[in-house]
Design a protein around this nucleic acid. Sequence first.
DNA 1: AACGCTATGCTTAGTCA
DNA 2: ATGACTAAGCATAGCGT
Lengths: 211, 211
Amino acid sequence: MVKKDAEKKRMGRQKIDIKFIENKENRQVTFSKRRTRLFNKAADLCVHYDASIAILTFSRAGRPYAFADRDIDSIIHRFVRTHSDQEPSNTHYPNRPNPLMDDYFRLVKDLEEETTQSSALAHRKNMPNSGGSGFWWDAEVDSLGLDELNSWVEALERLRENVAERVEEVQKGWSQGEVCAPSSSLLLVDSDTSNMAPLPEFLDFLEQYEF
Amino acid sequence: MVKKDAEKKRMGRQKIDIKFIENKENRQVTFSKRRTRLFNKAADLCVHYDASIAILTFSRAGRPYAFADRDIDSIIHRFVRTHSDQEPSNTHYPNRPNPLMDDYFRLVKDLEEETTQSSALAHRKNMPNSGGSGFWWDAEVDSLGLDELNSWVEALERLRENVAERVEEVQKGWSQGEVCAPSSSLLLVDSDTSNMAPLPEFLDFLEQYEF
DNA sequence: AACGCTATGCTTAGTCA
DNA sequence: ATGACTAAGCATAGCGT
């Protein structure tokens, strides 16, 4: 209740760079909000201008979110039909947004290349699975390059958070729901650990790095 | 020029109803502007949240305008593929333009949050790779007990530390390396993404638990 | 997490040059 | 029409509860 500082006023909207939002909590929260507003805006356009709009969205995780002012399949079909019919003749027919957008993305790319915060995972493609015999952690950590370490770290962070989420669920007795755990600490309520999870190989692997 | 009348101030933005804009000139002019801004907003989302978005628009006259942050056909195909699989979960269908739109969207939002939360963890789906062979992460996190979760957490914590250690090693020998985070996060800066880590299955697995 | 608040950036209806 | 400008509505980052 005590306000330690009177001059600590609220900040108001800040300007942010056009780059990937690293903070996961913030990202999660704001994505759904902004996606919803984008959809609302599209809906407004549909009404104001008697347009027909479909928005196909895939989240970072590959989850689909879509908007359409009417049957979405019909819009898609209509577009595909138009798309294959008339090629590059019609002026109003961009595969891409428009000239301005090209500049936009060129700019964005430049930014990315400068600060390269772009996630490794976003650009990954299937790699030839190294030794078919091995588990993924068989890769020698010591020999990993920075890129690979990035992926590892990111992946582990995410999994750790997911596990932490699940932990909270269990603790609170929730049956479902996404909760982002306080990713700082993972302290759990006791447990005797006599019942090992189904990951013997993994634990064996860890042994090598214990000290 | 001289303003003849001081009291005749400019009006600023007015609030307008959510209905078709009758004035044709006005309609034509503002449509392209707002469409462009909609596309820009979508582009922002793509960058901020590493999302992939395609917007298919047909004007009243039937002219197509489209936006996509990458090859639009691939997005459409991806959507069609996904869409046929998992029914109408995250899709907004504001079918009608009328004042009830607000209620509609509020309702849709509620629905979305429901389905999002439930499907987030429950949507364990078919992985092309994870056919039958058991990777350890194939264990359903959802169904793990507290003891097992403890094991997971412990193991992951240790591995994370080891990886973090290795990260530090690499960084010492790497002139340009910078840690992008306080101490809780381990994300690194830079690296080109040409050499990816050998853990496709693991990453696929993680996808399902990301939001 | 889910709301709520504030201050401020962003959008845009209407007007004028 | 083009484009600029104004002012008010709207969106939203960061913080608080």
